[in-house]
Write a protein that binds this DNA or RNA. Structure first.
Lengths: 339, 339
DNA sequence: CTGTTAGCGCATTCAA
DNA sequence: TTGAATGCGCTAACAG
């Protein structure tokens, strides 16, 4: 590879100084139009593009943000990532993507790496409750926002849906459809998101006077295969649940998969409610009943707020703490239970 | 935010020079163990992390690669991205994610940006045929690999599946199930990938003596909604196709969606074949018949080869041009046509 | 084995 | 309106 063309090369060709080149690159307004043109021409002829690394070092800004996701193959995350990257491009930011596979170790490692890369801000879409690193960043005033999660910290920035209420809506829906035996794919309560959904689920059971069957609760790590096996096993039991509430649509799909493998038809013999309202849930071949999150809105808002934090850190105002309302959308995977 | 801690601060605290600090950071082997410890302690106490930006500027390496995708919400891409980011982390690389939404303008813009960011290499998973920018990079010897696509250029690096053959397998399968009226969701032939699938499709029709019905071919841009409408419209016609072959599983889902909306049952009244074998295709609630791509293998290979190109550019060997074999997996969305 | 020195390619004062 | 000089925080010779 031939040597790169630097601003000095351009300067020489244009017969000006490097700082003048820098000025036209940065749209400095007070310049003679002719010199600007000379520089522009030289840039054109040489095919020069500035070195963003050097620029970052000098300016202490990278115009890059880190996006930490739990699992990019979960449509909830990828659909969010799509919105965030599009918006980022519009605002002239780049996105470094990090996939933790739901491991806190990875999360910490990624935060470390991103800080080393001097990203201007971070969006965390898969935060463990009380994560220490994140709290440190809040304390330092570093621009960081939790997406789809909240954190109890007076400086915490987050944008999420009311997960507690979402879970309640699910139980309510199933209850009204005469379901009394509800299996719950909860996921580990180490995440605030799932923790809140778990609380909502339990309180809703209480409200309707239903007892919780521990055997019907899956509280291990999110894993398609594990949930598939769990559901399949449960469906083979003598006293099997009449319905499932899954803490994510992805996991609801695993339940549907398991049901299909056992020849159990949905919704006739089994009802399933998900959470997230991924695009696929709308697909009429599937028609998953689920709890909506205003993903698009949340994602846009998250990026906008983050950029605001980055670019106008002067007036830090109050921390950003936004909680949106979920909604239940009834489709084809739930039906009235007939005993 | 308080001032960052630099290697000089560490050096001072440890009572050594900054270059010594740099040495321990880079695991330079010939050092007195005691000084190494002094430095390590100072690093620990100060909570120092090195500035990767400065490091990149000085070393001319960023340990970052660009990953350009057509659509992150298409599981084929997100599943590939997952493998690539995991592998990248293992090899101590970061990934900047770019989502083109299948627009060549975006592709070019992103390539530009990534080059400005001085990424060490680029993976393009959504390349337009004959893209000029990509060719330039090949000419310069810049490490760039096409994933799931090929390019006719003597220095092109690519890893893909035999798309021509894949399409043929699909037609063959449908033909053996007595389907004679096959609709094809082709996508625009400006992508090499789809172009080859289109060729395979047409040649297969010829082989079986089937005539191509232009009205059954969708050759516009990949868009879920557009394909949905196209399929729905077709299914409403008097002489509707008995089967669909979609150039991606994502588009096959759109067809299933349309069929469901028209109350047409699959596979009894309609057969559907996809392409990619996304995880969801295996879901028994759906059971999509499709053409497999060895995604995992392809993705791993792509990253490994790219890193090889980056790190050992001395022996550039022959260009990397790997074409893997596809396979048809018959599941629940295809059945024998009974007239 | 360790310190000194000179860049990397820009942005950004300060003068002129 | 422009140029010269300095430094961002590190790596990488080169001495010693």
């Amino acid at each position: 590879m031939k040597d790169r063309i630097s601003a000095y090369d351009v300067a020489e060709k244009a017969g000006v100084s490097q700082s003048t080149v820098s000025r036209v690159l940065n749209n400095y307004p007070f310049m003679k139009e002719t010199t600007r043109q000379k520089v522009l021409n030289a840039i054109e002829e040489l095919g020069f593009t500035r070195d963003e690394i050097a620029r970052s070092l000098a300016s202490k800004k990278t115009r890059t943000i880190g996006l930490i996701l739990g699992d990019i193959t979960n449509p909830f995350f990828s659909e969010s990532a799509k919105v965030i990257t599009r918006k980022a491009q519009e605002m002239d930011y780049n996105v470094i993507l990090c996939n933790t596979n739901h491991s806190e170790e990875n999360l910490n490692k990624y935060i470390q790496t991103l800080m080393g890369k001097r990203v201007d801000g971070i969006i965390v879409a898969s935060a463990d409750k009380d994560n220490q690193k994140i709290k440190e960043l809040y304390d330092q005033g570093f621009p960081i926002i939790l997406y789809n999660s909240i954190m109890e910290h007076d400086q915490a920035n987050y944008i999420a849906v009311n997960n507690y209420k979402g879970a309640q809506l699910a139980v309510e829906h199933l209850y009204h459809f005469n379901h009394r035996e509800i299996s719950y794919i909860a996921g580990p309560s180490k995440y605030v998101t799932t923790h809140l959904r778990n609380l909502g689920f339990k309180d809703a059971l209480d409200k309707y006077g239903l007892k919780m069957n521990e055997k019907f609760i899956y509280d291990r790590e999110f894993s398609y295969d594990e949930v598939y096996l769990f559901a399949r096993n449960l469906l083979n039991q003598q006293s099997r649940p009449t319905s499932f509430f899954a803490s994510s649509d992805q996991m609801a799909l695993a339940v549907l998969d398991a049901a299909a493998s056992e020849g159990i038809s949905v919704p006739d013999q089994l009802s399933v409610v998900g959470f997230d309202d991924i695009d696929l849930a709308k697909n009429q071949f599937i028609g998953l009943t689920t709890i909506t999150q205003p993903k698009e809105k949340m994602a846009m808002l998250t990026l906008e707020k983050l950029v605001a934090l980055i670019e106008e850190k002067e007036h830090v105002d109050a921390p950003i703490q936004i909680v949106l309302e979920p909604e239940l959308i009834s489709r084809k995977t739930t039906g009235i239970y007939k005993s």
